[in-house]
């Protein structure tokens, strides 16, 4: 595919269009785009907007799979438009739709607010009881690399909503928290600095929490960052069950490591060399 760089191939984009002011429901409109090797779906949409139809609306920002704005349904798969090369997924036709399981604001723009509200509800931040230290910090919270690895994978989430679009439970259950907020809950529950897991468990263990996940695995399959929300949710379920059975290991938020000079140095660390300048 790479040797064809100068030649373009016509690919028909079947794009979902919806204007809330004039359309009763979404419809499909087709555009033919000359596609060169290396062009992403986002490039194709830009081509349509600049050359064929300036009214087309979608959301994007960084163009490099970091911001999570351009989550779309490409050939039936929720994924990032900027991260997907057209010729990798299409020979002649490509369907481009908005992420499912959200309301459509216009064309390819889903309303992600429902996801963000659910995300906010699980306290996606480190919660501690020592207010004084949080407001006037005197040192760092100690965390080993091993403790970090327990949740590091789940921190790579960019909140693009692809997992929410792929989840079968969210297809019918409006109140289900969904893969992204639940993975975020697991991420903070497992953070050794955090002390807010009890409150989070109230929500993640509720009727529309982690137990509405039945491991269809779609969220992990579509995640463009390899976050694996399904894994996070299963670990969360185990924690909820152990907690209910009073078998969970007692967790205490990690201790604070005080400022420089107050920690104990290891004996075998050589002294710093003398300054040369």
């Amino acid at each position: 595919m790479t040797e064809n760089t100068n030649n373009s191939r016509p690919i028909t984009f079947h794009v979902t269009r919806y204007n809330p002011e004039s359309d009763r429901k979404p419809y499909i409109k087709s555009y033919t785009v000359p596609v060169r090797a290396g062009m992403t779906v986002l490039d194709g949409l830009h081509y349509i907007k600049e050359n064929l139809d300036p009214t087309l609306a979608w959301r994007f920002s960084c163009r490099m799979g970091v911001c999570g704005s351009c989550g779309m349904l490409l050939n039936g798969h929720p994924t990032l438009a900027c991260n997907t090369q057209i010729l990798h997924i299409a020979d002649t036709d490509l369907t481009v739709g908005p992420l499912p399981n959200f309301e459509i604001i216009r064309d390819l723009v889903p309303d992600l607010m429902t996801m963000f509200e659910k995300h906010r509800s699980i306290n996606p931040h480190i919660v501690r009881t020592d207010e004084k230290e949080l407001n006037t910090p005197e040192g760092e919270f100690y965390q080993t690399p091993e403790q970090l690895e327990k949740f590091l994978q789940f921190t790579y989430c960019i909140k693009c909503g692809c997992c929410m679009g792929a989840c079968p439970t969210l297809a019918t259950d409006v109140h289900y928290l969904g893969p992204m907020p639940l993975a975020a809950a697991e991420r903070y529950d497992n953070d050794s600095r955090d002390d807010g897991w009890r409150d989070r468990h109230q929500l993640t263990g509720s009727a529309h929490g982690a137990f509405r996940c039945h491991y269809a695995g779609e969220c992990s399959r579509v995640c463009p960052k390899g976050v694996d929300p399904a894994r996070a949710i299963q670990h969360l379920k185990r924690q909820l069950v152990l907690d209910y059975l009073h078998l969970a290991r007692k967790k205490k938020p990690c201790a604070m490591l005080h400022g420089p000079g107050e920690g104990k140095l290891l004996a075998n660390i050589p002294a710093a060399p003398a300054k040369t300048v």
Partner: peptide, 26 residues
């Protein structure tokens, strides 16, 4: 503003795309 609810409904359980083997198992 008027919105269109793009929830897949029961179709979202059964299909809605080219899904993997765990989806069929579910």
């Amino acid at each position: 503003m008027k919105r269109h609810d793009n929830r897949l409904g029961l179709w979202g359980w059964l299909g809605g795309g080219r899904w993997g083997v765990e989806r069929h198992a579910y």
